[in-house]
Design a protein around this nucleic acid. Sequence first.
DNA 1: TGGGGTTCAGTGACGTTGTCACCAAACATC
DNA 2: GATGTTTGGTGACAACGTCACTGAACCCCA
Lengths: 253, 253
Amino acid sequence: MLPVFGNIPKYSCIRDNFLLHQFRCILISVSKGDRVLSWIDQFPGLSRLPEGIRTYLLNESKIVTVPANTVIFGPGKSPENLLLLLDGTVRVQQTSDTGREIVLYRVHAGESCVLTTACLLAYEDYSAEGIAETETRAVAIPRAVFDKLVSDSIEFRQFVFTAYSKRITDLFMVIEEIAFQKLDIRLAHKLIELAAGAETVSATHQKLAVELGTAREVISRQLQEFQRRGWIEQSRGTIRLIEPAPLVKLAQS
Amino acid sequence: MLPVFGNIPKYSCIRDNFLLHQFRCILISVSKGDRVLSWIDQFPGLSRLPEGIRTYLLNESKIVTVPANTVIFGPGKSPENLLLLLDGTVRVQQTSDTGREIVLYRVHAGESCVLTTACLLAYEDYSAEGIAETETRAVAIPRAVFDKLVSDSIEFRQFVFTAYSKRITDLFMVIEEIAFQKLDIRLAHKLIELAAGAETVSATHQKLAVELGTAREVISRQLQEFQRRGWIEQSRGTIRLIEPAPLVKLAQS
DNA sequence: TGGGGTTCAGTGACGTTGTCACCAAACATC
DNA sequence: GATGTTTGGTGACAACGTCACTGAACCCCA
């Protein structure tokens, strides 16, 4: 957590039952050469901002923290700020009329919720919603500041459009996967991804179903098949990958 | 077609076997009040550009025409220009490794291929490709001009981000449809859309399958069911909607 | 004008995925 | 330990995807 001096103003918040603490961003006096170190250095795309822009951005943005499971934006809750994540992850997902859900993409630390800027500068409502998966710390850039930065800095424009590019590519991949990939491959892929090198994955079958936009029963059946082959072991809420190799192989095919 | 004076320079082109005719954009001397009429007025989002920006845009952009079935951009063929469509439509679709295809969205006259700007300013390759469905006339805005316009004009920024918003919303809808909607509903919807008020749809079963990201046989079976119910009549390459009402009802459910 | 190639559509069998109704085990709470 | 909730298991069936194959409609050109 960055050091904060003085009183911490509390604002009303994203969802009525959550408190969003907003801190005015404060420069930390750690010099690196002739430059001040700040959160900006956590974003490679922003590191080359000229000094004036850099200062403007630092002065006009705030650092916010939200608790886990906060709905950051969603239908009827269009975001007022562009968020750059410092810690935590945001899950962006969509819910259908019938109640089924699918995860579209995740925003990790060092990335931006840039797709929201589209509706931030335009007026359309998102049908998707963004949820903080863990306690999340982020830089909030107000609409007007974002607009000015896009106007004034070619580096910032590059940053924004590069982020767009990545997200849109992600969406294309999601479409390709749900339309064309077989479920066993997608599930193997997701297990490897969620394990992130570790041996166990903490997730219920229902959660995995939402990740892949399918039904719980389908996940249960497929995991039983993996178990029957001796690749995984299951217990309530967790899956142990005891033979990752064939899973990896399946995920790549 | 806009009047063009002098010689028409021919450039090398988008695909080696197609010629892309590029015309320097020429102001048409039709005054409307104290303002010059031009293609800009076909784009509501651009109509409020200030005079200087307007002139810059007119001078620095070109009007291009491409024949039907031209691949405008695709894997390994990143676009050098932002295209604003004056006539025709561009189909953006994606092909999987296994050869199956799906239509992601269409760009119509009066709209822009704005998602390409993401990779235009960034460096990533699109896995999707854009194909002119009919002979297509468009305004081409070079990368550098696009960047300058985004920098200089808040109206242009609004235009760009609004277009982004629409496209991304489209993508979300595509994801929701493939993941959650039943095929009969999607097919009914697509038939109504392609008919556009007319009685007949000219499309092979294969084309419809690509529209919905499914297999031809599935379309054939479903159309047979519609036919059995007396809603449509089929002949090679065309479908007659003889009872649109129940199709519309199905599409809305 | 009629052969020959190509495109388009129809069919049946089968595997995979989605849906529904229901049950049982594991866990949380008091 | 009784109770309610969450999580996972099961079987039947419907919907969709895949494959191999067939025949009809169309095009072209000698």
